[in-house]
C-alpha cells in the first residue's frame, strides 16, 4: 500500500476503505478522489463530483441527515476541503452519527499542475476539525493504520474526520460518467427504489 515515496498509495487506500462497504453511500470530491472511487468500481451508490469545489463535505451532511440509517462517506482532497473548511463547523454542530469524511492529503492541487496547498506548509486539518468540535478523528500515515480507519468509517460513531497523508503521484485517469442527472438519479434510485422518480 506504500508508494516509492514511503507514503500511502491513494488508490490502494481507497480500495481498502471501500472494501465490504455494504450499502454505504460515497461522495467523492472533484479530481483525483472521483477518479479513485471510480477506479475501484463505479456504482449507483457513488457520487463522483465534477465540480462544486468546496461542497463535498456539505453534500455528505445533507445526505446523512436525509438518510440517518445509512452510512455516508465523503472522500476528498486537501484543496477541496480547504475551500469549504467552514463546513467542519456546520457539521460539528449537526453531529450526524452516520457521516465520515476522509481527506486524502497529498499537499498539492493535483489537477492544476501540482501547486502546493496550505497543508504542505503545516496547516493541520485534523486540528481544525477538532477545533470545530468533531471529537472523533484520525491522522493516518502508515498501512498498518488503515484497518483502524476502515473500522472507524463503518462504526457509525460520527461525525468522524480523518486525514490520510498520501503519495502525490497522479494515477491513471479512470473517469466516471459525466452526465450529472444520471449520477444523481442513480443514487436516488439506490436509496429509494423506483419511488425516487415519482412525485413526492
Amino acid at each position: 500500500m506504500l508508494a516509492a515515496s514511503g507514503k500511502l498509495d491513494r488508490r490502494e487506500l481507497t480500495r481498502a476503505l471501500l472494501a465490504d462497504r455494504g450499502e454505504m453511500l460515497v461522495i467523492a470530491g472533484l479530481g483525483a478522489p472521483a477518479w479513485d472511487i471510480t477506479a475501484i468500481g463505479d456504482c449507483a451508490e457513488n457520487l463522483p463530483l465534477w465540480g462544486g469545489m468546496g461542497g463535498a463535505a456539505m453534500i455528505g451532511l445533507g445526505l446523512a441527515l436525509a438518510q440517518p440509517k445509512r452510512k455516508v462517506l465523503v472522500i476528498t482532497g486537501d484543496g477541496e476541503m480547504l475551500m469549504g473548511i467552514g463546513a467542519l463547523a456546520t457539521i460539528a454542530v449537526q453531529k450526524p452519527a452516520n457521516l465520515s469524511i476522509v481527506v486524502q492529503d497529498n499537499e498539492h492541487y493535483g489537477e492544476t499542475g501540482m501547486q502546493e496547498t496550505a497543508t504542505r506548509h503545516g496547516v493541520d486539518l485534523v486540528m481544525m476539525a477538532k477545533g470545530a468540535g468533531i471529537a472523533n478523528t484520525m491522522f493516518v500515515t502508515k498501512p498498518d493504520e488503515v484497518l483502524a480507519l476502515h473500522k472507524a468509517i463503518h462504526a457509525g460513531q460520527g461525525p468522524f474526520f480523518a486525514v490520510a497523508k498520501i503519495d502525490a503521484t497522479s494515477k491513471p485517469l479512470v473517469l466516471p460518467p459525466r452526465e450529472g442527472a444520471l449520477l444523481q438519479a442513480r443514487m436516488r434510485e439506490a436509496v429509494m427504489g423506483p419511488a425516487a422518480h415519482h412525485q413526492l
Binding site: 453511500l25 461522495i27 457520487l47 462544486g52 468546496g54 461542497g55 463535498a56 463535505a57 456539505m58 453534500i59 455528505g60 451532511l61 445533507g62 445526505l63 446523512a64 441527515l65 436525509a66 438518510q67 445509512r70 469549504g84 467552514g86 463546513a87 456546520t90 444523481q184 443514487m187 436516488r188 436509496v191 429509494m192 425516487a196 413526492l200
Partner: peptide, 15 residues
C-alpha cells in the same frame, strides 16, 4: 454556498 451543497445531498437522500 454550503446550503447549495447541503440541499444537493438532501435531494440525493430523498429529502
Amino acid at each position: 454556498e454550503e446550503g447549495i451543497a447541503l440541499l444537493q445531498g438532501a435531494w440525493l437522500g430523498g429529502a
